[in-house]
Amino acid sequence: MKIVLAPDSFKNAVTAKEAARAMRKGFEKILPSASYVEVPMADGGEGTVQALVDATNGRFLTAQVQNALDQTVSAQYGILGDGKTAVIEMAAASGIQYVDAQTQNPLITTTYGTGQLMAAALAQGVQTIVIGLGGSATNDGGAGMAQALGVRLLDVDGQVLPLGGGALARLARIDTTHMIPALSRVKVVIASDVTNPLVGPNGASAVFGPQKGATPAMVAQLDRNLTHFAAVIERDLGKSVAQILGAGAAGGLGAGLLAFTDAQVQPGVEMVVAQTGLTEIVRDADIVVTGEGGIDSQTQYGKTPIGVAKAVKQVNPQATVIAIAGYIGAGIDVLYELGIDSIFCTTPGAMSLAKAIEATEVNLTQVSENIARLIAKQH
């Protein structure tokens, strides 16, 4: 019997790798002779670098970069086991964790540090850069990222614009002559499940700006600025990014990547499935176990458990797909129609969130053992 363990992280509790190991411990207690393969997963958000490095036996590197508030911080990125692919979470440099209620200001926050991480990866000689978009504190359309990579954003006097989305109103010309040459030779994969365009009522500023501290007046200003940025991009670079689905991800960083690199947007979990080789691994599996911290009706929209289930059923429809979660919400019936065969909860009874998080690893092992007992009865 082949059992593949492909969970996401359980947020604030265990990494995807730790979750897979906890599951395996429970299964092996009852099914010691089964063949096990651990494939840590993610969906492009938090934990993507960790999952992909773990799954491919890659390595972690650290770079000194500027955070969303232009302060120097250490940020981690990964090189996958092939040695040719870098994986970056934009939040590592430009994430919401760097601001608070007093300092959040999407007029000045910047993706400059994300560009610095990309430059660090390019210096390693990689051929592909995977960038997970999520958890951003920014709304600059990827302008800071571009500036870190050598792009000059100039005003009417030929002066370089300051960082932040608030300055884009003064943009007169884009100069790419000093852009890092290696950037034109790499493939960039944008891992994101956000389908919002850059501008408009469903754009980056209107939908995500308020979460980053934008007042209604700021939202209107930022949307105007991004509209202007997109117009200059189209005039100077010949690329139309304003209404591309996904361009509004991470405060418009999606648009910036599409404008200044040879980038393609791919749903996060599909990207992780491809990078880990999960489809081939599950082709002869009997049982596939996935999961994450919470499962509910929203799981169907590109979250790891449903991404794993779809990948499995495409190549091995007879395999049983089991999902485990710390919390099970409403509307999960739809997931049974999309490839998940059964869903189990780790929490054995009423307890505080803090206690449930603390006991996640133990509870994962216990519920996995219980599932294994059922499987053993059937075999």
Score class of each variant (00 low, 15 high):
103 T>D: 07
41 M>T: 07
90 M>H: 06
130 V>P: 00
82 D>Q: 15
97 Q>N: 13
91 A>Q: 07
43 D>F: 08
122 L>R: 01
122 L>K: 08
37 V>E: 13
44 G>T: 01
89 E>K: 00
84 K>E: 03
60 F>R: 09
146 A>C: 03
53 V>N: 07
96 I>N: 01
122 L>F: 06
44 G>F: 01
145 M>Y: 02
116 Q>Y: 13
102 Q>I: 15
126 V>M: 02
24 R>Q: 14
128 T>R: 00
70 D>M: 11
149 L>C: 12
115 G>E: 03
132 G>N: 11
94 S>V: 13
86 A>C: 03
82 D>F: 10
132 G>Q: 06
66 Q>W: 05
86 A>W: 00
51 A>M: 07
76 Q>T: 15
115 G>Q: 01
45 G>C: 07
44 G>P: 00
124 Q>F: 04
89 E>V: 02
74 S>Y: 07
146 A>M: 02
89 E>A: 02
96 I>G: 01
21 R>Q: 13
131 I>T: 01
101 A>M: 15
96 I>C: 03
67 N>Q: 08
74 S>A: 10
61 L>M: 13
73 V>I: 14
58 G>V: 04
131 I>C: 02
66 Q>R: 11
103 T>Q: 09
89 E>P: 05
137 A>R: 06
136 S>Y: 01
135 G>W: 01
127 Q>T: 04
78 G>D: 04
39 V>S: 11
121 A>L: 07
68 A>V: 10
75 A>N: 11
36 Y>L: 11
64 Q>Y: 13
80 L>W: 04
64 Q>I: 12
80 L>R: 03
129 I>Q: 00
112 Y>N: 08
34 A>S: 15
60 F>P: 10
74 S>C: 07
30 I>C: 02
93 A>M: 12
99 V>N: 04
123 A>N: 03
144 G>K: 03
127 Q>L: 05
31 L>D: 06
63 A>K: 06
130 V>Q: 00
61 L>E: 10
108 I>Q: 09
67 N>G: 09
92 A>G: 09
42 A>S: 11
146 A>T: 03
94 S>C: 15
123 A>P: 00
72 T>V: 14
93 A>N: 13
72 T>Y: 14
75 A>S: 12
146 A>I: 05
22 A>D: 10
71 Q>A: 15
112 Y>M: 06
144 G>V: 04
72 T>H: 14
99 V>R: 03
63 A>V: 10
45 G>H: 05
69 L>V: 12
49 V>D: 04
116 Q>P: 11
138 T>G: 11
62 T>L: 12
129 I>H: 00
25 K>G: 13
118 M>A: 09
37 V>Q: 14
123 A>W: 00
80 L>K: 01
97 Q>Y: 10
73 V>H: 09
41 M>I: 09
79 I>M: 02
89 E>L: 02
126 V>Q: 01
26 G>M: 12
71 Q>S: 15
40 P>W: 02
62 T>W: 12
47 G>D: 14
86 A>P: 01
81 G>F: 08
71 Q>T: 15
23 M>I: 15
59 R>M: 06
106 P>N: 13
119 A>M: 05
45 G>A: 06
121 A>W: 04
94 S>H: 11
124 Q>T: 05
39 V>C: 08
36 Y>W: 11
24 R>A: 13
101 A>Y: 12
64 Q>G: 12
89 E>W: 01
60 F>W: 09
120 A>Q: 07
82 D>C: 13
131 I>M: 01
150 G>D: 04
31 L>K: 05
147 Q>S: 14
69 L>R: 13
80 L>P: 02
125 G>P: 04
45 G>W: 02
